[in-house]
Design a protein around this nucleic acid. Sequence first.
DNA 1: ATTTTTAACTTGCATGATGATAGTATCAGT
DNA 2: ACTGATACTATCATCATGCAAGTTAAAAAT
Lengths: 163, 163
Amino acid sequence: MKHKSLDDAECPIARSLDHVGEWWSILILREAYYGAKKFDEFQKGVEGITPSTLTRRLKHLVDTGLFKRHRYSEKPERYEYVLTKCGRDFYPIMWTLMEWGNKYFAPEGIFIQLKNIKTRKAAIPFFADRNTGKEMLPKDYQIAPGPAASAALYTKIATSKQE
Amino acid sequence: MKHKSLDDAECPIARSLDHVGEWWSILILREAYYGAKKFDEFQKGVEGITPSTLTRRLKHLVDTGLFKRHRYSEKPERYEYVLTKCGRDFYPIMWTLMEWGNKYFAPEGIFIQLKNIKTRKAAIPFFADRNTGKEMLPKDYQIAPGPAASAALYTKIATSKQE
DNA sequence: ATTTTTAACTTGCATGATGATAGTATCAGT
DNA sequence: ACTGATACTATCATCATGCAAGTTAAAAAT
């Protein structure tokens, strides 16, 4: 789809989506977390993606800094796609998407879940605030303008009655 | 974009994306968290969206259970879009997208952030595991097959070398 | 009484992105 | 020479989107 870049929007959510908001991008990242590095691994893991789309998406993810394209073979020219720090730090979004999906869209039961590697116990993740050490509940927090917010954004948020 | 539904995929991430994976959807949800309910509020808040796309997206979000279309006026036929529980429970994904965007794509500084309503202090969210009460670090956790996983999925995950 | 405004869309068209399918290029091994 | 692995590229019909304008219907303003 044609749509303008959100990279200059005054909103970190919009900017994040500018990097991973297109179809397939997050599924490609999921495969990377599973350990995929090579083109074919992504193609097999992400069911239904066409090679041309995979090429485009990988290129975009490399261009915006989530993957690094690394040449792992000289003679036959071969590349692999490895996550950068930025790409690795995407994991909280992956985890929350997984939890939300498990909660609302898994009537047949849980397909995948997070497990503690040592104890083998399924994790029950929740948000906590480092200031208090306590759980962050939506009723106690709201989105507020930060130091770099423009006057317009400030007004927009100030006059909104958040849920 | 034309693409098959991921609703039957054995992956909660794919299923979640089936609901909110299209362009604009998450931005529309963001506006809902700001308090938007009416069509025009969404259109003003989500910069650049066209009314036809907004109509389609709202319809999809209503169809898949994130919003409820509620008639708030009889004489002039008027509807508003209110979040369901499922839609409200999307907030962790919104929060993590916001944090990730603030961390990597906000060179000018923070535009918006989460604040504790009482203390007015900016939150520093992190994941904790209810089993241990401690922070969940990616190195200690991995994606594992759940009770409903098929043999094929089990094999796929078992043979992957996760990062 | 007439005009303007508000609210919630719909319609039509050109453009751009995607899915399906097939094909290319290079090298390794048999 | 042939097969297979790896990493794509090419073509084309179809679908989704952006853009701009129009619609409906009531309320509010003049």
